[in-house]
Every structure is written in C-alpha cells, then in structure tokens.
Design a protein around this nucleic acid. Structure first.
Length: 592
DNA sequence: ATACAATCCC
C-alpha cells in the first residue's frame, strides 16, 4: 500500500525525500521483499543516500535474517561506522554463522575501526561456537586492549566463554573480580555451568547466591532444577522449587517443564505425571519431556499412550517428540512399532519432523539391541545422511550385546576412521571381544588405548542424602562412613549368597583369576552407593543411585537380590536408562 | 539516534 503510494508519488512532480524513504523503511521492516524494492527505488531516485538510511535498511535485513543482502549493502558503503560493523557481526552471530562473525571482527580490527562495548558480546559468543574454540583467547586480549574488561556485559560473556572452554579457574576469576554482580551475572554463570555439565558447581553457586542475598528469579530456578536433573537429587530440587514459590517467584511454563524433567531424571515418573496433569498450560516441550521421560524409565506403554493422546488433544509433535517415541520402542524392544513410526516420519511431508541423525541412531539402536544386526547394518548403509559416530556406535553396541564380532569390527573400523577415539567405543569393542572369548583381540584394543593415551572415564555413582550428593568411585574408601559401608556390603553378600546369588565374573572383562574378578566386582561404585543408601536413607523410601556409565550384569543382579532381601525399592539411573528394582525384579526385564 | 549478557524436551 505504502509502496504503491510511493510509486505514484514518483510519477508526480514531487520528489521522494529521504524522510519519506526512512518512514517507508520503518513501516515495511517486516516485509523482506518490499525492502528490496524500496532499495531499488532509492537507487532510481539518484539521491545520495546517507549512511543513516542504509543503516536502517541493513538493520532491517539483519533482523529479518537476510544477512547476505545486508552484507551487500555493507560492502557498498563508504567507511561504515562501528555501529554498522556491530550490526553485521550480530547478524552473522544470530544466524548461526560464527565464522563470518569472527572474521568480520578481524577485518574491522585490521582496518583500525575501534570496537566498542557492543561489539564484543557478539564476537566472544560466536568464538565459542567455532571449531577452533580457543580463538576466543585472542579476542579477550582485544577486550583488554580497548579497555573494556570491566564492561559488565563483555565480562559476563567472557566468563561464560571460559566455562565453555572448561577453564573454571579463569571463569571464577572473572566472576570474583567483577565490580558488581547482578542477577543476570549469577544466572549466566549458573546456566553456563549447567550447560557444560558442572552441576555441583552450579548448585554451589546457587547456594552462594542466596548467601549474597541476591533473590533468584524463574531463570535461576530453571537452571538450578536442571542441575538437579543432572545430579539426580530430587529432594534438593523440590526444596529449591518450593522455597522459590514461597518467596513469590512467578512460576511459568519453562519452570514447570524443568520440574517435570527433574522428576523424570530422578526416576519419579509418577510424580511427573501428577504435575503434568495439574499443569493448566502445556506445550510441546512438556509433552516431549513426559514421553522421553517415560521411555528412559522403561515405561514404554505409558510413553506411547501419552503420545497417542498428544496426537488427539495436544500440540503438534516435533522432532524431539519422535526421539522420545523411538526411544520408547527401543527400550522395550518394540521393533515393528519402531519401524512404523520411523516410516511415518520419513514419508511425512512435514519438514519439521523429518528424521535427523539422532533418529537414525535410535533406529540402529533398536534394531541392533533386539538382535537384528544384519538389518541394522543395511539400515546404516542405506542412510541418506552420512552416518556419524552415533550411528556406528549404536551398531557396535548391538554387536557387543549379541556377540557379533564380524559386524562389530566393521563398525569399530568406521568409528576409528571418523576419528571417534572416545574411550567408551574402545571399551565397547574390548567388551565385545571379551564376551566372545577373544582375549587376543581384547589385548590389542587395550594396547591401542594405551598407545593413544585413551583413558577410560572413571565410573562413579551417587546417592542424595540430607541435602547432599554423596559420590562414590570404584573401591572408594574416602567417605567418612566408609567402614560401615563395607561392613554393610559384607552383610549383604552373606544374605544374598544364601538366596542363590553368584558373582557374574563374566562381567569382568579382564583375563584374570577368578578371585581377582570377584574382588573387582564387589567394590563397584553402585554397590557402595547402595550400601550407603541402606545405612542412611529413611526406611521404606526408595534409594536412588545415579551412575555416570552403564551398569554391569553383576551389579544389576546384585540390586535385584538386595531389593528382595531388604524389601526396598532401588532406582538406578545408568548412562542410558533407568532400572527400577523391586522385590527381586527389574523394570527393564533384563533387556538393556 | 540506533544495540549487548541468563531459562525447559535433543
């Protein structure tokens, strides 16, 4: 409409003024194709367009996401000022082009244009997304050079950068030496720690924040709950939530979703469901959280039932929802259902649910785990996207369970070709050979790991008690209650042996003597954690054990027996799923 | 004259 008027005006003897054009630009800022027409119009007027006008145009394009067009305008400009550099740097950063963002900053710097406090937040953030993540260190030097190290926002962004680089020392230093710490600073630090998996650090900061009398808001609570999800500490999480509500925090759907997730990741799907049913407002994240949560808790029927309810009365499922659906099928061995769901999303015209790498990996996991190794192999070969380490790793996992050395070796070769020298793959491979009795190959893998300095991730388990998370590693003797823990373990062994428990020495993948194997198994971290739980956790309440790696057959069996003789429910979370032990039976039905 | 940092499911 406006544009039509303008064209009309041009045919009359009234000249288009800069003011007209500027107004026009503001009005049309949400219509990209019209903006381009206006730009063409400007060119036909022959008006010497001032930077301010182009600035407006460029800013609009950046907001609309057409960075290429903005770049074109930018390149045509004569000596753009800092603001414009910033705008384009921001444009690249916001459009997931960190490389371009950083290199534009380098251009700017080499041309002698002085960056300001608005330049660095974008550049620093973009630098953390580069493959060469330490590029940010040089940018930090520039920050110092331009005297902006005490600029609150810039410093905040640098602090987060160091958390992402794993340099907590420097992150702490930047935090401690800030002139003032506001709520956003605390929230940024806590959130960055949670994102990088430093959950204990995040909770420590949350506590420290309370001591500093900074009142948390909903954002803080979401991060804190997220930390509790990681640690598996349900009681701490509930306390945090309740005290925030008592302190007048306005709850919102993100907080509620974080709470659902926390319940699920602590093994309390029932509590999650109660909260879910009470929520007035639910979005796709709420539903996906529930479906995925049910899946990892081994409640596939509930997951699929909720999914079908979602299709009838909930929001439109997205690709994450389907990860939950496939995961539910995978954990329950529902092969044909999994295939059907997968075919549905592949054949769907809906771009938003098209399968991604993770969906393919889940399908390979489903097929491999259920023993359809050949099908899993053809599936991976027929993938339209290049299979990544996740896909080959899933195949190797299936082969390790079903002792398929032939396909497993192919998967392992691919993994190493991809440069995926992750310890867990080597361990999987070595375990595969061990279970097939090929000790010669086990030794080869071991040797390779030693040569390449690949260290196994140390196993640990934790139990929450008395508002603390108690950690145990294998053979741990550092806990103050250590002697009673080992005594308890001794008692348990005597009791469960009388019921027929026998150490599954096959779980020890070293070629050593029997007694030695038993000794190794006896002090696995989850057993220590279980004994600790039995000593301390209030009687009749379930004992939650969280483990960072997968549990072994022997520990799985141990928990079954102990749940029976102690009349206690044990909830164990391992790296990929939950095991709910009750009266000698595990919810996973030994399928995992 | 114009602008910058923090939150949920993967």
């Amino acid at each position: 409409m406006m544009l039509a008027k303008c064209r009309q005006k041009r045919s009359l003897p009234f000249p288009l003024t800069k003011l007209t054009l500027a107004t026009l630009l503001k009005v049309c800022s949400s219509q990209p194709h019209q903006l381009k027409q206006i730009h063409a119009l400007i060119l036909t007027t022959g008006l010497s367009v001032k930077n301010s006008l182009v600035t407006q145009l460029l800013t609009n394009q950046v907001i609309l996401g057409d960075v290429q067009y903005a770049r074109k305008l930018f390149d045509e400009m004569h000596k753009p000022r800092t603001f414009l550099w910033n705008t384009l740097i921001r444009g690249y950063a916001k459009n997931d082009m960190p490389m371009e963002s950083v290199s534009l900053f380098r251009n700017m710097s080499s041309l002698g244009v002085r960056p300001d406090g608005f330049t660095f937040p974008f550049v620093v953030k973009a630098s953390t997304e580069l493959p060469e993540s330490r590029a940010g260190l040089a940018i930090h030097a520039h920050v110092v050079k331009y005297g902006l190290e005490y600029n609150a926002v810039v410093r905040n962004e640098l602090m987060m950068m160091y958390v992402k680089l794993g340099d907590m020392g420097l992150a702490d230093y930047l935090f401690e030496t800030m002139i003032e710490r506001d709520l956003v600073t605390w929230n940024s630090f806590i959130a960055a720690c949670v994102q990088m998996g430093y959950a204990s650090k995040a909770l420590a900061l949350f506590h420290q924040m309370g001591l500093a009398r900074v009142k948390p808001d909903a954002v803080t609570i979401v991060s804190a709950l997220s930390a509790c999800s990681q640690l598996g500490c349900l009681n701490i999480g509930n306390k945090i939530y309740e005290s925030a509500v008592n302190d007048g925090m306005e709850s919102n759907i993100i907080v509620e979703n974080a709470r659902l997730d926390m319940c699920m990741k602590c093994g309390s799907s029932h509590m999650a469901r109660t909260l879910f049913d009470e929520m007035h407002l639910k979005n796709v994240v709420s539903w996906s959280t529930m479906i995925l949560g049910y899946a990892v808790n081994g409640k596939s029927e509930e997951a699929l039932a909720l999914f079908s309810r979602m299709q009838n009365e909930g929001p439109k499922p997205n690709y994450v929802t389907y990860l939950g659906v496939l995961s539910a099928c995978s954990h329950a061995g529902l092969v044909s259902q999994g295939r059907a769901y997968f075919n549905y999303i592949v054949n769907s015209n809906d771009q938003t649910i098209q399968p991604r790498r993770e969906h393919y990996s889940l399908m390979i996991d489903l097929l491999g785990r259920s023993g359809h190794i050949e099908e899993a192999y053809s599936f991976i070969i027929g993938m339209p996207i290049e299979p990544d380490a996740g896909a080959w790793g899933a195949l190797l996992g299936g082969c390790a369970i079903h002792k398929n050395v032939k396909v497993g070796q192919v998967a392992a070769d691919k993994l190493f070709e991809l440069g995926a020298d992750i310890a867990s793959y080597h361990v999987l491979l070595s375990n595969m050979y061990a279970s097939a009795g090929r000790w010669d190959y086990v030794d080869k893998v071991r040797l390779k790991m030693r040569k390449k300095c690949i260290k196994k991730v140390a196993a640990y388990s934790s139990v929450e008690f008395n508002s603390k998370v108690h950690m145990f590693c294998s053979g741990d003797k550092s806990h103050p209650q250590s002697s009673s823990i080992y005594q308890k373990l001794e008692d348990l062994y005597i009791q469960i042996r009388s019921l027929g428990y026998i150490s599954e020495v096959g779980s020890v993948h070293h070629d050593v003597e029997m007694e030695e194997k038993e000794a190794v198994l006896r002090v696995h971290s989850e057993k220590l954690a279980a004994a600790f739980g039995l000593i301390n956790v209030e009687p009749k309440t379930p004992i939650r054990v969280m483990k960072n790696l997968r549990t072994c057959d022997d520990c799985h069996n141990f928990f079954k027996f102990v749940s029976r003789i102690c009349m206690r429910e044990f909830i164990m979370r391992d790296k990929s799923r939950f095991h709910h032990f009750r009266n000698g039976i595990c919810s996973c039905k030994d399928f995992w």
